[in-house]
Structures are given as structure tokens and as C-alpha cells.
């Protein structure tokens, strides 16, 4: 009997923790984009997307960094002056846990900054960069 108990506890732990990992809303969002993109994401490409000055968007917002500052760990500022919570997951655990919200801000900000919608790969790269930050 005892031996089963010893085996059962770690086994349960593995099952529970992997279930928790798989169902994390953030990884579900990344998986959602991965399925659409059909390829792996790169934090380095996400960093590029974040830091680059883009053409094609609205002149007021040429880059993500216009509002979010050069580091995702910083508190940003909207053009009107309202603070924006840091983008980096290490500084803001609430980030990227609500797909509807994530989609809303990608739609708006990609159009503002790039003048077009972002592709699933760009979204996945961006999130991967922010999750690693």
C-alpha cells in the first residue's frame, strides 16, 4: 500500500502541473497564433518588430516605442499622457491572458503603427519576446 502512495504523489503532481501549464491562458493564446502561423516564433524577431521605426502607419505613432518606451519593462505613456502598464510579463503578470483583449490591441496598434493588421507570426513573435522579457 505504502509503495503506491509514494508513486502516486509524484505522478499526480506531474499530471496536475502539466494540466495547469497546458491550460494557462497565455500559452493558449500563443498556441492559437502558432496554429494559424504554422511555424515557431522568435523572440528576436519580436524585439525587432517592437523597436523598429515603421513606415506606413499613422505619423503620430511610428513605432511601438513611441508609447511603450524603448524597454517593455518600463511604464509607458499614451499620447494623451495616461500611464500604460509595462508590456513585459515579468513586470505585469496580467498581460496576454485574455485573447479578446490581445486581439483588440494588436488590431488597433498594428494599424496605427504599421498601417495594416499584423500576421499571426508577427503576433506570436511579439508575445514570445514579451513573455521572455
Amino acid at each position: 500500500m505504502k509503495i503506491y502512495q509514494y508513486l502516486l504523489a509524484p505522478a499526480l503532481l506531474v499530471v496536475i502541473s502539466s494540466a495547469a501549464f497546458a491550460s494557462s491562458p497565455r500559452s493558449q493564446i500563443v498556441d492559437f497564433y502558432r496554429q494559424q502561423a504554422g511555424e515557431d516564433f522568435s523572440a528576436e524577431r519580436g524585439k525587432q518588430l517592437f523597436s523598429t521605426r515603421h513606415d506606413g502607419g499613422k505619423p503620430e505613432t511610428p513605432s511601438c516605442t513611441t508609447c511603450h518606451t524603448s524597454s517593455p519593462k518600463n511604464t509607458g505613456k499614451t499620447r494623451v499622457g495616461k500611464p500604460i502598464a509595462p508590456m513585459a510579463v515579468s513586470r505585469n503578470a496580467d498581460r496576454y491572458t485574455d485573447l479578446k483583449k490581445v486581439e483588440k490591441w494588436f488590431r488597433r496598434n498594428c494599424r496605427s503603427v504599421l498601417g495594416r493588421e499584423c500576421s499571426p507570426r508577427e503576433k506570436g513573435d511579439f508575445l514570445t519576446f514579451m513573455i521572455n522579457q
Binding site: 499613422k58 499620447r79 488597433r108
Partner: peptide
């Protein structure tokens, strides 16, 4: 979609 220089669409 053109909200004072930003896309604020909902």
C-alpha cells in the same frame, strides 16, 4: 479607426 491620429476601433 481614425481617432486623433490613432486607431481606437472597437
Amino acid at each position: 479607426g481614425n481617432h486623433f491620429g490613432e486607431d481606437a476601433s472597437l
